[in-house]
Design a protein around this nucleic acid. Structure first.
Lengths: 137, 137
DNA sequence: TCAATAATCGGAACGATTATTAATAATGGA
DNA sequence: TCCATTATTAATAATCGTTCCGATTATTGA
């Protein structure tokens, strides 16, 4: 059994993650901390994010074939993903608390977590484009 | 505007995908077809899966930092993902049809699709492990 | 049939993540 | 407090899924 030690790096990585709601990537956290720890390594960020996930302090949000994102809000909540820019947002007006599901599926799979996502075009990307049709000239 | 052509490879890729409910990866499809097309390239499989997705014949299921999977059932339906083995299953007993959501979020994001996943331990993985506690010896 | 060009093949390139290694530093006990 | 233990770090190499590239081939509409 592995015992975790407290390091400045890990502490700050969690603090940085808790200070934003932008669901950062490992690289974003690294950029944010490399001035504070000039010798910080990207591998350290990755390893600590994995450890923080094991500890339940952080949730990993997979995005398939692009970079993963991390969220320090571990309470289950839905996300909105923009298919144009890849942005990931919280949807504060929506909740998944009311959706109930069984402990096991009919096939006997044990459910421990429900993940709900909405996909589409985010408000900033909508503004960049004409109301309908293709961009002209 | 790009026009699509019909190729044997693309046709067979879609057929193979429609012949299974295992949500295959690109590599799985490639293995399945490389005897039929000895000179088949993995890049061709990837490109065609992307084209089939553009055409709406196939849905990509992202799995973050592991291989993506593809589903020829394009009707929205929830999936179960095993966190032990990475397996992806349909949950035939569950549906997401009853869950309603607005066209736009409060922040103005345009929603075009809802993705619902259940995570946990699948039945085969449950059987491999003792009912509770850690594996002994 | 023929020209235009989309699609293929093979391999190289890419980017996010993980593994490796030696050096460093946090921890618990004497 | 000092020391031994060992988790953690930094730097870099390696991995792996996926995409891109150039030359060739195949499909399509005229």
């Amino acid at each position: 059994m592995q015992t975790y030690r407290n390091t400045k790096q890990r502490t700050r990585i969690l603090e940085v993650l808790r200070s934003t709601d932008t669901h950062p990537t490992a690289a974003w956290v690294y950029d944010r901390l490399k001035f504070e720890f000039p010798s910080l390594s990207l591998g350290t960020v990755y390893r600590n994010l994995t450890i923080l996930e094991e500890q339940g302090s952080v949730v990993r949000i997979a995005s398939g074939s692009t970079f993963d994102r991390y969220d320090a809000v571990v309470t289950p909540h839905p996300h909105f993903r923009c298919l144009k820019c890849g942005g990931l947002y919280d949807t504060k007006d929506m909740s998944q608390d009311a959706i109930s599901y069984p402990e096991k599926t009919a096939s006997g799979h044990l459910i421990t977590k429900m993940v709900l996502e909405f996909h589409g075009t985010c408000a900033p990307c909508l503004e960049k484009r004409p109301a309908s049709g293709e961009m002209k000239i």
